[in-house]
Simulated scan of single mutants.
Amino acid sequence: MSKDDESRLMAVELAKRLLVDAIWKTASIEVDGISFRDTQEIFEGRAPANMAVDDIIVVNNIKRAWMFLLENVDQPVNWQYMSEYNRILGEGLIRDAGKLRTNDVRIGGTDWIPELPTMESSHDGISSLMKIESPEDRAHDGEPCAHQRRRRSVLHKPIPETRIHNQAIALLRVER
């Protein structure tokens, strides 16, 4: 086994061990007041008392998205990959989850309205992002995610939570 393969395997194993913590940190951006204990309960298949169904769905979708990342760490990042990732995140919450955004979105705290993406601009953005050699630099340079409420916006940078997932992709994709 090569050193790169060993590093990749170690990164995947570490990510799996830290999965509940990563899910909780990601979910805390979406679900006001969620605790680590609530996240652990949902991760184990139980619904915390007095938690909204949509909040439970958010946490489960984030869990499923992390599992997708871990199971597909060696797959190329392309439109199909990102579409499926975003479909998982938005399932049961967002109409047309995983599809290209066709309506305007607003970003809280600003008057800026991102341009509507095109298939061409999305492919170009993913391609340019994947040309960045360093996985760490790639994780900080862009967020190739289709619109999913506050979580996602096609090749759009102001949403810090998406960096968590990009860092997971980048760090697990140790140089081949």
Rank of each mutant, 00 (worst) to 15 (best):
N103K: 04
N72C: 11
E13A: 14
D111K: 08
G92D: 14
M10E: 14
V20Y: 10
G108E: 02
I57W: 04
I56L: 02
S83L: 11
D111G: 13
T110K: 09
D55M: 04
W24T: 01
I23W: 11
Q80S: 13
Y85I: 07
V73Q: 12
K99P: 06
T110H: 00
E44W: 07
N78M: 03
Q40A: 06
P114A: 01
N103R: 07
V20D: 08
N86Y: 14
G125W: 00
W24E: 06
I113G: 00
A27P: 09
Q40M: 15
A52W: 03
A97M: 02
G98E: 04
T39R: 04
I23D: 01
K16L: 09
W66N: 04
D54T: 12
I88M: 02
I107K: 09
A52Y: 11
F43Q: 05
M67G: 06
I42K: 01
I113Q: 10
S28E: 05
K63G: 04
N72Y: 05
S35K: 12
A97I: 11
R17D: 15
N61D: 06
P76S: 08
M67F: 15
W24R: 01
V20H: 06
G92P: 13
L100H: 03
L69F: 10
R101H: 08
S121D: 08
E91V: 09
Y81R: 09
A97F: 07
W112C: 08
E91F: 15
L14G: 13
E115T: 06
N72W: 13
E41R: 05
G98L: 14
M67Y: 14
M51W: 07
D124T: 12
H123I: 08
A49T: 06
L93Y: 00
I34N: 06
N50Y: 09
F36T: 07
N50A: 09
H123Y: 02
D104V: 09
P114R: 02
G125V: 03
W112D: 03
S35E: 14
I126R: 00
L93Q: 08
P76D: 11
A49E: 10
Y81M: 12
P114V: 01
R106A: 13
N61R: 04
A52F: 04
M10K: 12
I94M: 02
N86H: 04
P76Q: 14
L19T: 10
A15G: 11
N61Q: 11
T110F: 08
V31G: 00
L14P: 11
F68S: 09
A47V: 13
R87P: 06
I62K: 13
N86C: 15
V31Y: 03
A65Y: 07
L89T: 00
P117D: 07
R95I: 15
V53I: 09
R64L: 13
Q80T: 15
E115H: 12
R87M: 05
T118I: 05
F68T: 01
G108F: 10
L69C: 01
S83D: 10
A22C: 03
M51L: 12
G108M: 06
D21H: 10
T102L: 07
I88Y: 02
M67K: 12
M119H: 12
V53R: 07
T110N: 04
T39C: 06
